[in-house]
Simulated scan of single mutants.
Amino acid sequence: MNGFMRHIRACNTAILPGQRHVFRVAGEIVGYIDPRIATALSDMGLANGNEFTLDDPSRLESIGAELASMGLYRPHDELFDVWGKEGEPPLGRIDRGALPLFGFIGVGVHLNGLVRKEDGQHLWIGRRARDKRLDPGKLDHLVAGGVPAGLTPEQAIIKEAEEEASLSPDVIRDNARQVGVIQYALDRPEGLRRDRLICYDLQLPDSFQPIPADGEVEEFLLLPIAEVFQLVKNTDEFKFNVNLVLIDLFLRESLIDPHSSEGRALRQALLGSENAQAVP
């Protein structure tokens, strides 16, 4: 089990709040301020004792743009929603690159592209392009990506599937199944990653051949799931958070006994560390 648990632990390294200050937007705790932007936010008048507060969420986008202009992060030029309480509408939006500096929740979608052959289950794997900003050249899912502002996870997975693997919207709408949610709180060089991953399974015909359409994937590989199992267990070939989605798949496919003490421990760990669950 340690071969799998190490990936989960590696994605739950953040201590919250740690050295960060709480950030309230419209009265709600929604993030944790990275010390690298604390002085800039103080100069904008957002410091409030030991916290930072913003009463007007509509300012988030311009605040993010100003921080980027100061060279405090590299913008993605893509807006993401800023979430407060789960189940309620987003409070505002900000450039995707700013999310880790504010400790905002980032929502992503991951799709397991499965093919059942005579010798068992197989999985489509993508290799990330070498010029990707994050984890270039690492193995990845058939389809994965963030959920841009204004889109639901369902809309985002349809968009990503068409862009990354030339899968038609109808195939995703009719056949992709949401199978779980994974969350974690991770310290990375870009800041605090508080991610919520919406996971999908898609059973594909043996005749399917993915075609990369947006240049983000270098190649696609169709591997026996047993081989993927060994890669996750024994190597770091996959992008850091893809390992977690695959461990969840292994539990559902019973490659790891979900009813064993080890399986239950992995399942609980995938829900997020105590620190991750303590935040909104």
Score class of each variant (00 low, 15 high):
1 M>A: 12
1 M>N: 07
5 M>Q: 13
6 R>T: 05
6 R>F: 11
7 H>P: 02
9 R>C: 00
9 R>F: 02
10 A>T: 05
10 A>P: 00
13 T>L: 06
15 I>F: 09
15 I>Y: 11
20 R>I: 08
20 R>H: 10
21 H>R: 14
21 H>F: 01
28 E>M: 12
28 E>D: 09
30 V>T: 15
31 G>N: 07
31 G>F: 11
32 Y>P: 04
37 I>G: 04
38 A>F: 03
39 T>V: 10
40 A>P: 00
44 M>L: 15
47 A>G: 03
48 N>Y: 10
52 F>C: 01
54 L>A: 04
55 D>Q: 14
56 D>N: 15
57 P>D: 02
58 S>N: 11
59 R>E: 09
60 L>A: 05
63 I>V: 14
70 M>C: 07
72 L>C: 04
73 Y>D: 02
79 L>K: 15
80 F>D: 05
80 F>S: 06
85 K>H: 08
86 E>Y: 03
88 E>A: 15
91 L>T: 11
91 L>C: 14
93 R>Y: 02
94 I>G: 02
114 L>S: 03
115 V>N: 08
127 R>M: 10
130 R>V: 01
132 K>C: 12
133 R>N: 07
133 R>K: 13
137 G>L: 09
143 V>S: 06
145 G>T: 06
147 V>F: 03
148 P>I: 09
149 A>R: 12
151 L>K: 13
155 Q>H: 02
157 I>F: 03
159 K>G: 00
163 E>N: 15
166 S>W: 11
167 L>W: 05
169 P>T: 09
171 V>L: 15
171 V>K: 14
172 I>D: 07
176 A>S: 08
181 V>S: 05
181 V>D: 03
182 I>A: 09
183 Q>S: 13
184 Y>C: 15
185 A>E: 03
188 R>P: 00
188 R>S: 13
189 P>G: 11
190 E>H: 08
191 G>C: 07
194 R>F: 09
195 D>E: 11
196 R>M: 13
201 D>G: 08
204 L>T: 12
204 L>P: 14
207 S>I: 04
207 S>Q: 10
212 P>K: 00
212 P>C: 06
214 D>H: 11
216 E>K: 15
217 V>E: 00
221 L>A: 13
221 L>W: 10
221 L>E: 04
223 L>K: 15
224 P>G: 06
227 E>D: 13
229 F>I: 05
230 Q>Y: 01
231 L>S: 02
231 L>T: 02
237 E>D: 10
239 K>D: 03
239 K>H: 14
241 N>P: 00
243 N>I: 07
246 L>S: 05
247 I>S: 04
247 I>E: 04
250 F>W: 07
251 L>F: 04
251 L>W: 04
255 L>E: 01
255 L>K: 06
256 I>D: 05
258 P>T: 10
260 S>Q: 05
260 S>G: 07
260 S>Y: 01
260 S>K: 01
260 S>E: 02
261 S>G: 00
265 A>I: 03
269 A>F: 11
269 A>Y: 06
270 L>R: 12
271 L>V: 00
274 E>A: 14
275 N>C: 05
277 Q>C: 12
277 Q>L: 15
278 A>M: 02
279 V>M: 14
